[in-house]
Design a protein around this nucleic acid. Structure first.
Length: 153
DNA sequence: GCCAACGTTGGC
DNA sequence: GCCAACGTTGGC
């Protein structure tokens, strides 16, 4: 899951009550469908910092609550207001995630690109902008190993 | 700030 | 259903 750290970082997640935060504001159908159809309680999440000096994986979270209607969609005061959404027809969904760990050092995108076993990772494919993407177990484990190692920087 | 690559909108 | 125009994402 990608987030701009100026807006919401892994440290912000850690500081949230119980380390839990709702992932509201997703207004892309593919990302919505992925949250609604594929993300399950306890699933691990790579927390990615985007649009910042060193984009990369900052740490880990887990799904604390499965998909439920994103109420910001029918709040006219919200930046994420969608006039076509309503409590009866929510249109947009969100999950809640819980902080698990922050890596000692971010795993930079540039480093991910150098790891041959990650070459098929969706994040690294050309034109891939989706803010929520599936990750294979092997990719997840590889990135955890790099993130926890003293050699990462 | 630039720009490539997508996604969405809306006229026809 | 097509597709041009526009908006967004996100690395660099």
């Amino acid at each position: 899951m990608k987030s701009e750290p100026r807006t919401f970082s892994i440290d912000d997640l850690k500081a949230a009550p119980d380390g839990v935060e709702s992932w509201d504001g997703i207004r892309n159908y593919q990302a919505r469908n992925f949250m609604r159809d594929d993300m399950r309680q306890g699933d691990r999440v790579l927390f990615y910092h985007s649009s910042c000096p060193t984009p990369g994986v900052a740490g880990l979270a887990e799904v604390a609550r499965e998909a439920h209607p994103d109420h910001t969609a029918w709040d006219p005061e919200s930046d994420y207001f969608d006039p076509k959404a309503s409590p009866e027809n929510p249109r947009w969904f969100m999950v809640a995630i819980r902080f698990v760990e922050a890596f000692p050092h971010i795993v930079p995108l540039a480093e991910l690109r150098r790891v041959s076993t990650l070459r098929n990772m969706k994040l690294l494919q050309r034109g891939q902008r989706l803010s929520i993407q599936p990750v294979t177990k092997k990719e997840y484990e590889t990135i955890c190993r790099i993130g926890r190692s003293a050699a990462s920087r």
